[in-house]
Design a protein around this nucleic acid. Structure first.
Ligand code: SF4
Ligand code: SF4
Lengths: 152, 152
DNA sequence: TAAATCTGGATATTTGATGTCCAGGATTCG
DNA sequence: CGAATCCTGGACATCAAATATCCAGATTTA
């Protein structure tokens, strides 16, 4: 009955999305993103490809190629990124302990968990990359420019 | 940065808590609870012990012994059970990708995730075993008595 | 054409959940 | 008292999924 899972890949993906937002329209190779965060390049690639399949990120091959953010930051919610990387699983799978239990039609435990899961998703869907960007700028106005310089 | 994890043990624990609530003041051995749900007895034991350490459940050894719910159902929230079984982990651990990132003092991703996590916990803390009991009775008024009969 | 870069699948490694086992200790009952 | 019942807690085995690596194409730039 795993209700909510969240892997490290989401953290990486979010960082990369912000990085790409700051990089603007200059493609950034996966290798450079990985190096920037000290992450295994071959694995980060997988997260980026997932973001690509979700239409959040776009890629161009060849020299001077790399990844670009493919949507305006204020249209990409954190939920979008989580769903892209960890999959938009059917909310939660139940172990079906139905042997002689209280089961008639509906299950109280089931719905209670679904409700909590929904609250979580709603919260993630309420924030976008643009919000994160604004938060970072408030704390350190130079960070975006510095990151951009290091990546392009 | 695993934010929310939820294991199957929680589902089992919730089922057992409801069962014990219905069993009233008659102790139910772990073996019978396990058989009732078709679960591995040796492993269910672990969840029950966790519930015991959290003060949700009480145990009496010896013949005619077993487990009892140790608090009125309306005082046991789903969050209590989740925390007892899966641990009240520090909400979420961050991988610290701090190498050259936007880090100054606070982290936007961090706080956004913490907020979502909080929403999830709040939802779980808002419902108690008594609520679940009421839901089940509404769907099938006979279920509690039937379960009690099978367990005692 | 050569270099850079992505794509996608196969596979290995690691971690944590799941499941098992056993050697105690407490309690009840005869 | 002695035997049966039941819990406690730790050590250990197993399994699934996340994490990580590798490589053989495909695509674009120069
Ligand atoms: S009562 Fe049934 S549906 Fe609900 S969590 Fe348990 S097995 Fe799943
Ligand atoms: S920005 Fe820093 S604090 Fe925030 S999730 Fe990334 S590594 Fe953790």
């Amino acid at each position: 009955m795993v209700v909510v899972k969240m892997t490290e890949g989401v953290e990486w993906a979010l960082h990369c999305c912000l990085d790409l937002a700051w990089a603007g329209d200059t493609p950034v190779p996966a290798a450079r993103l990985a190096a920037h965060h000290g992450l295994p390049p071959a694995y980060l690639t997988k997260q980026l490809q997932a973001l690509g399949r979700a239409g959040i990120v776009r890629s161009t091959p060849g020299p001077r190629g790399g990844y670009l953010l493919d949507r305006p930051p204020h249209t990409v919610t954190l939920m979008d990124v989580v769903a892209a990387v960890d999959g938009a699983d059917p909310a939660f799978r139940c172990t079906e302990i139905r042997a002689g239990g209280p089961h008639t039609t509906r299950c109280a435990i089931d719905t209670a968990m679904a409700r909590a899961d929904l609250a979580w998703r709603r919260e993630l869907a309420a924030r976008t990359l643009a919000d994160l960007d604004a938060d970072v700028r408030r704390a350190d106005p130079d960070a975006p420019a510095a990151t951009r310089a290091r990546l392009t």
